[in-house]
Design a protein around this nucleic acid. Structure first.
Length: 540
RNA sequence: GUUCCCGUAGUUCAAUGGAUAGAACAGAGCUCUUCUAAGGCUUUAAUGUAGGUUCGAUUCCUACCGGGAACACCA
């Protein structure tokens, strides 16, 4: 419909003698301004003439467009009731596929996210990339792409050496923070940790090998159990131990790009872009840093899964250094650089400030889940884990990807109002409603012959439900899952209004149409929640 | 100091350069013979400051003020 209108406006402009004029067609946020709206009238300076030309030219769309109006220079299109009735029928027909499109057909997208480091706890900071990354993956899938999810884990590096040092000094649970503290405060320990780091790379020490292998396995199993709870399924796991060597070789093979300095190998990114800075790629111990491993990773990924687009989800604290990395990649693998997109998320902050796994000042994911579950348990006997996961994911997804989230356990994880629970509740409610209707043998009619209970509420819900596929597409274009969250909250609110104004299951002639609208709502809500990865409990 | 990100109701968040800046929580006041009150209805309340570009600026540009991050061997 949008494309049809676009062509219509374009032709009308030409008929007025205006050519090559850029204009937009969009859904106005306010339903009073129509179902579609164009600014072509303002830009061309002749809104009334353009509207008149459009009314003359409707042709094939007659019956689908109810009226065309000019308000404040905008030309607003109001679609007909018959059009929406038909679309309600189509939603039910498409069911679980309603909202899918093929705009990315043929694309092969690799989304890397979560990236927890073995030997460190999985804390609530890891939730951000996990929820953001896996949701983006699903959004790309709904837009027709073939999507694979990857997790990249730092199983070698100084942080592991710190944890091993902690274990060697009798720490178990808090091995990593203990090692980190010693590294910063104690020169002797610092040297020991560096020595351990080297031994981990060359596997020359039997005792360290054993501790390392065991610790790594325990850690990865623990992450797996969390992925199960979160509903994340990774297609690939990459490890720094496999990218380190690849990366180091790449750096060594490009002496024209990298320079030796003070025993290390560095990259002067500021020579290519003055807003960038110098970074170390191979340290003076001869070990590759994260930057180098990341270069290796780009190559390893492309060999494993020849992607057309590679999305890397990380925290925004590494934005600057990632730009340096992309600059290096541009020189070495220009084709891969073109396909790589870095999406950074904000931090999960506590009211007191940033939390850090280095000092041990963290809330682990499981602690958080327990706390939210306790809060939900106060509400009654329900599917606590599903609701808790939904509440947590909603809290993250409702914000812009890039902005920080202030996490206050008492306030942020709300179980009322603008929350995941509210959406799950709306879904469960319509589910039991439809179930009840089936038991009573009520019919659902969405065809244009059936009488409709024609209320302002049903009509606005019809209009909103129709927009779902375009919301899914926009969420992909802008990498903005929060558009979907806002949308679902809006239709849930609109449904509540419907409920307040009419009794859906009744013997009145229009109730079968109301039921059809309810079913369409139920379908859209389920599909929307599925994309967001929020569980959809059948009953609450 | 340099570079980058961010300043919106009391609070937590929205708003592809568009129309009357939206929600939720908190505050004030209503509302359960209806499907589930985890709900609904009323109501109070905001674009850091000063310029600029534009038919139109919360959005883009400049300066300032305020917050955060990165800035050579951590990731």
């Amino acid at each position: 419909m949008k494309n049809t209108l676009y062509t219509l406006v374009e032709e009308a402009l030409v008929s007025l003698g205006v050519e090559d004029q850029k204009f937009t067609i969009e859904h106005p946020t306010n339903l009073a301004f129509g179902d579609y709206s164009t600014n072509a009238g303002i830009i061309s300076g002749k809104p009334e003439e353009l509207a008149a030309a459009l009314r003359r030219a409707q042709g094939d769309l007659l019956g689908q467009i109810e009226k065309i109006e000019v308000k404040n220079g905008f030309i607003n299109f109001y679609l007909s009731k018959e059009f929406f009735k038909k679309s309600i029928g189509e939603i039910a027909e498409k069911g679980g596929d309603f909202g899918k499109n093929e705009s990315l057909k043929g694309e092969r997208v690799l989304v890397e996210h979560t990236d927890p480091n073995p030997f460190k706890p999985f804390h609530i900071g890891h939730l951000m990339p996990n929820v953001v990354g896996s949701t983006l993956a699903r959004i790309y899938e709904w837009n027709g792409a073939e999507v694979k999810e990857a997790c990249y884990q730092g199983d070698v590096g100084i942080h592991v050496a710190k944890a091993i040092w902690g274990i060697l000094h009798g720490e178990k649970e808090d091995a990593y923070p203990a090692g980190n503290k010693a590294f910063e405060e104690n020169e002797e320990a610092k040297e020991e940790i560096k020595a351990i780091n080297k031994k981990i790379y060359d596997r020359s020490d039997e005792k360290i090998n054993q501790l390392y292998d065991q610790g790594r396995k325990v850690s990865l199993d623990y992450f797996d159990s969390i992925y199960t709870k979160l509903g994340t399924k990774f297609d690939y796991f990459f490890f720094e131990s496999e990218t380190a060597g690849v990366g180091k070789k790449i750096v060594e093979d490009h002496p024209e790009i990298f320079e030796k300095s003070e025993g290390a190998v560095i990259f002067h990114a500021e020579n290519h872009d003055k807003s960038l800075h110098t970074r170390v790629f191979i340290n003076s111990e001869g070990l590759p840093t994260y930057e180098t491993k990341e270069l290796g990773l780009a190559k390893v990924k492309a060999e494993k899964y020849p992607y057309t687009k590679s999305i890397v989800v990380t925290g925004n604290e590494i934005n600057e250094y990632f730009k340096v990395l992309l600059q290096a990649m541009k020189l070495i693998f220009p084709d891969l650089r073109e396909k790589t997109v870095h999406i950074s998320h904000g931090m999960l902050r506590r009211p007191t400030g940033k939390m850090s796994s280095r000092t041990g000042d963290v809330i682990t994911f499981e602690e958080l889940l327990e706390q939210v579950k306790e809060k939900i348990a106060e509400k009654g006997d329900i599917a606590q884990e599903e609701v808790a996961i939904g509440a947590i994911k909603y809290m993250i997804l409702r914000s812009n990807i890039g902005s920080d989230i202030i996490f206050d356990i008492d306030k942020s994880v709300s179980t009322e109002g603008d929350s995941g629970v509210y959406l799950q509740y709306s879904y469960a409610r319509t589910n039991s409603l439809l179930e009840k209707a089936r038991i009573q043998g009520k019919a659902l009619h969405a065809d244009s012959q059936s009488p409709a209970l024609d209320t302002r509420e049903t009509h606005s819900l019809e209009k909103l439900l129709y927009r779902f596929p375009e919301i899914v597409e926009r969420a992909r274009e802008e990498n903005a899952p929060n558009l979907l969250v806002t949308y679902l909250t809006e239709i849930a609110g609109s449904f509540s209004n419907l409920y307040a104004s009419e009794q859906i299951i009744s013997d009145s002639p229009g109730s079968s149409y109301l039921l059809a609208v309810t079913e369409a709502f139920n379908t859209v809500m389920k599909n929307g929640l599925t994309i967001l990865g929020i569980p959809t409990p059948e009953k609450m």
